[in-house]
């Protein structure tokens, strides 16, 4: 069986990264923006793991575990901030978060 070449993983990562960036820039729902950021982080993980396998080292995989942990912490903080915001403003739409001019 032929192993999957690392370039394929990089293409997959680039695709996820692009989708994530477009998501952050075009979507207005804060939760979907948060999900798009997670998508970019997953693109990073795929790249790291693919490179790690290519080099035959574990550095990249350990890095990926750190990134996953960080993504979890980030989601917790982000949703916490969103709940605090929702209690005061009853919206999750980024366009309505406009007390301070952008």
């Amino acid at each position: 069986m032929m192993p999957i070449p690392p370039t394929w993983c990089v293409y997959l990562g680039t695709g996820l990264f692009t989708i994530g960036v477009i998501g952050v820039l075009t979507r207005r729902n804060v939760i979907i923006i948060l999900m798009s950021i997670e998508l970019i982080l997953n693109a990073v993980n795929i790249n790291l793991v693919a490179f790690s396998r290519y080099f035959g080292e574990v550095d990249g995989q350990i890095f990926a575990i750190f990134v996953i942990t960080d993504a979890a912490a980030e989601a917790a903080v982000g949703l916490g901030l969103l709940i605090a915001l929702f209690r005061n403003k009853e919206t999750v739409n980024a366009d309505e978060i406009d007390l301070l001019k952008w």
């Binding site: 952050v24 950021i37 980030e74 903080v77 982000g78 901030l81 915001l85 007390l99």
Partner: peptide, 20 residues
């Protein structure tokens, strides 16, 4: 709230770039 939300969204977006 708004300040924190904006800081968080743009901050984690930038961190994602850094990581990539």
């Amino acid at each position: 709230n708004e300040s924190a939300m904006k800081y968080f969204l743009l901050g984690s977006f930038a961190t994602a770039f850094f990581l990539y």
